[in-house]
Design a protein around this nucleic acid. Structure first.
Lengths: 341, 341
DNA sequence: TTGAAAGCGCTAACAT
DNA sequence: ATGTTAGCGCTTTCAA
């Protein structure tokens, strides 16, 4: 009943512990008959390898680190779930490490983390995918890592990304097709480059449709609900206020809607609002928010997959992987209603 | 530059490895002078103990497990942050393990987890705090654990809780004081006993104020936004519809508000709405939601503290710890406006 | 294809 | 107050 060790298994199967080790680690060069004997013994004893012993002897931990600094709980949970699901199926554990990307000591913090825990690899989520001190430590220690939605130095590691700019382009075109010409844009936090790059899609759509880019219609946001409110205050106070506002994420879009409600504007009649991410808040606010759904969990799984492949020594030939976002039409967008006047 | 081991430190300090071990583990019986020498050597070599070796030799992992099955990303993240902050300061790591409390195999799953990872202890969050198969496995293996907001078998482990019923009582009294007499209640998921017990506070407040409990005004919800919508559909279709609805959590309250908006009701004029938890959605919806704030992160910290104390052999004399919730007044509640008719 | 033996870096008795 | 000596359970040369 007590925990069985590799020795017990070896004894029961009548082989050496090395052979058991080979079977457990799915190494080649074991006769099928032998393998079966060992498997049977393992099953009988309900044997599980001791991870500590394995780590100590093998000089790796079977643990990967997941680093993040993201205020969106929903985003983080989705990433965690994606990473965990892939790790579980391959016998790895995950060490989560929230941190502050603006901390000047972030490099040392990550270095300490690596030495303390001997993690085998790292997954970086935005905005950490673009934080130089972290990238430097990782390179210096030659620790395998994969980045989610990086925007800089892409060749230094495998990564996964989505077609953010393209989706933003589609959303903007959608608004234009509905009849909007003055479309406000609330840009994402400049440190979150992937988010801030959504602006490119917005711009491209305007150009494509021969609508001049009015700088007054573009306001800097910081990914928070409050920054969305502030941006809306500015945009809706404009002499020629926009008939639609596209925010680079859902939280900011929710902030925009809050201000619109307070000003007594009808959505989407007086103002159409669109977001990005499709977080739960998108369908919990009224009217429900037209937005772009990102395959967050799938990205995390893909990233983990790339990392584990690397750890197993397989050459990751395809360093990049692109997953597609999709537009979700809900109730916050519609044709503009001309002001009666 | 390569990683230093305990032997290197011992050699440099001119002591035995056992002494180094004593210093590192803050054990007594080391002369101050010796301790200083060792500390200096550790610093010089930038030594960090190898966790795998330590676990193997010491038969513990310095890792605790955090088990949860909660659809609210915000709740989970808050708990994680609380647990992590306490663990970090005491040299422990956290292994997160989301799972499904309705899985009939949950017991085996947890048992496997424990044998694989040799975690030293476990923190259980609702509704897992009340899942018998998990409690049984934990007891059987004598693994120390702490529960957050349990409702059954409280003496079997240390735990932390909040004054949920009391807060629900206060909220109900608040609504009554505003002039509401027909107050609908959307009850929490029966498996989440702590949530479902909020009903007791609602009932007590009615009794206290001589308002008869109308069963038609109490609808079973399941903690989700959608179940809040369904409950609102039922309540607002009543011949004598309520003038206020108190939902046992914010998501359900958001669902209630969505339905109210769709029916053209003014909030709070035609209908006051109150929630519970103060998740981010509470201030992202319009009008912002009156609710009860729970000290989730503080509870998680406290729970972790109790667990680590246990692991260190200190007798946890106070097996229970109560933290207080507080009422947050926002814009979704107000005096009922009599129907013009 | 299989096995024997030597550690991995630490903690835990048991000295001294 | 400090040191000696075994392991913890596994992976890894290197042989056979």
């Amino acid at each position: 009943m007590a925990k069985a060790t590799i020795d017990n298994v070896a004894a029961l199967a009548g082989v050496s512990i090395k052979t058991v080790s080979r079977v457990v680690n799915k190494e080649p060069n074991v006769r099928q008959a032998t393998r079966d004997k060992v498997l049977k013994a393992i099953d009988e004893l309900d044997y599980r390898p001791n991870l500590s012993a394995r780590s100590l002897a093998g000089n790796r931990s079977y643990v990967i680190g997941l680093l993040y600094d993201n205020p969106s709980a929903n985003y983080v949970i989705d990433v965690q779930d994606g990473v965990l699901s892939t790790c579980r199926s391959q016998g790895y554990d995950v060490l989560i490490h929230p941190c502050n990307h603006q901390d000047p000591d972030i490099g040392r913090e990550i270095r300490d983390l690596m030495r303390q825990t001997r993690i085998d690899g790292v997954i970086l989520t935005p905005p950490l995918s673009d934080v130089m001190p972290i990238l430097e430590v990782l390179k210096e220690r030659q620790l395998p890592f994969v980045r989610i939605a990086p925007t800089i130095d892409k060749p230094i590691s495998p990564y996964v990304e989505t077609n953010d700019a393209e989706a933003a382009y589609d959303m903007t075109c959608e608004l234009i097709a509905l009849g909007h010409e003055r479309i406000g844009f609330v840009a994402g936090h400049p440190d979150h480059r992937a988010v801030s790059h959504r602006f490119e899609g917005y711009r491209a759509a305007l150009v494509e449709n021969d609508i001049p880019l009015d700088e007054a219609l573009v306001v800097q946001g910081f990914n928070s609900f409050e920054s969305g409110e502030e941006a809306a205050d500015v945009l809706l106070a404009l002499e020629q206020a926009p008939t639609a506002i596209f925010a680079a994420n859902d939280d900011m879009a929710a902030g925009v809607m809050m201000v619109a409600h307070q000003k007594g504007l009808r959505i989407p009649g007086d103002l159409s609002v669109a977001g990005f991410d499709d977080t739960p808040v998108a369908h919990q606010i009224w009217p429900s928010l037209t937005t772009v759904r990102q395959p967050i969990q799938a990205m995390a799984q893909k990233a983990t997959d790339l990392l584990l492949k690397q750890l197993k020594g397989k050459d990751v030939q395809l360093p990049a992987s692109m997953l597609s976002s999709s537009l979700i039409r809900r109730d916050s967008t519609g044709k503009p209603i001309p002001h009666k006047r």
